[in-house]
Simulated assay, not measured.
Amino acid sequence: MNYEQLLNAFGDGTENLGADEGDIRQLPTHILKDDPLKGPSALPEDARQCLICLEDFAKGERRSILPCLHGFHTNCSTKWLRTNGSCPICKHRISQST
């Protein structure tokens, strides 16, 4: 295949691969009511940090859960999913329609 045929077949990388806004809005979210690092409702050690912004979760922050069960700050995951419709950890697409 020549270059033009490859572009026609696979695109040039500028296509929006983001998730649908409706799919993003439907993700389950919750506000962390207790300290997520300790106490009875502490998150598992491997889930105590948003792996998009690399910040630890804190009491009062909103956390979204993707279908693959990975969790992120809601603001971080919304921004990420608008341009990349899949989980930044496991690459699972949040929408089955794409």
Rank of each mutant, 00 (worst) to 15 (best):
Ile65Met: 12
Thr78Asp: 15
Asn84Ala: 09
Asn2Met: 05
Leu6Ala: 05
Pro36Glu: 07
Trp80Met: 05
Thr14Trp: 02
Glu55Gly: 06
Cys68Pro: 01
Glu21Trp: 07
Cys50Pro: 00
Ile31Trp: 00
Gly60Ile: 08
Asn8Val: 01
Arg82Tyr: 07
Arg48Tyr: 06
Thr14Ile: 03
Ile31Asp: 02
Thr29Gly: 03
Arg63Trp: 03
Asn8Asp: 15
Leu81Lys: 00
Phe10Tyr: 14
Ala9Lys: 12
Gln5Asp: 08
Ile89Glu: 05
Ile31His: 00
Ala47Ser: 13
Asp46Asn: 12
Gln5Trp: 06
Leu6Asp: 03
Leu27Lys: 11
Lys79Ala: 14
His30Trp: 14
Gln96Asn: 09
Glu21Phe: 01
His92Ser: 14
Ala9Phe: 10
Asn75Asp: 14
Pro67Leu: 05
Ala42Arg: 15
Asp56Gln: 12
Cys76Trp: 09
Ser41Pro: 01
Glu21Ser: 12
Leu54Ile: 10
Ala58Thr: 14
Leu37His: 07
Phe57Ile: 04
Asp20Trp: 00
Pro40Trp: 04
Asp46Ser: 08
Ser41Glu: 15
Ile94Val: 10
Cys90Ala: 07
Leu27Gly: 12
Leu7Phe: 11
Asn2Pro: 00
Ile52Phe: 05
Asn75Arg: 10
Asp20Gly: 00
Pro36Trp: 12
Asp12Gln: 11
Gly71Phe: 03
Met1Arg: 10
Leu6Lys: 13
Cys76Asp: 12
Ile94Trp: 05
Ala42Pro: 02
Thr74Ala: 11
Leu17Gly: 04
Gly11Pro: 06
His73Asn: 12
Thr78Cys: 10
His30Ala: 11
Cys90Ser: 11
Gly22Ala: 12
Gly18Ala: 10
Gly85Met: 06
Arg82Thr: 11
Asp12Lys: 08
Thr78His: 14
Ala47Phe: 14
Ala58Gly: 10
Thr78Lys: 12
Cys68Asp: 09
Asp35Ala: 06
Leu54Lys: 10
Glu15Gly: 00
Lys91Ser: 06
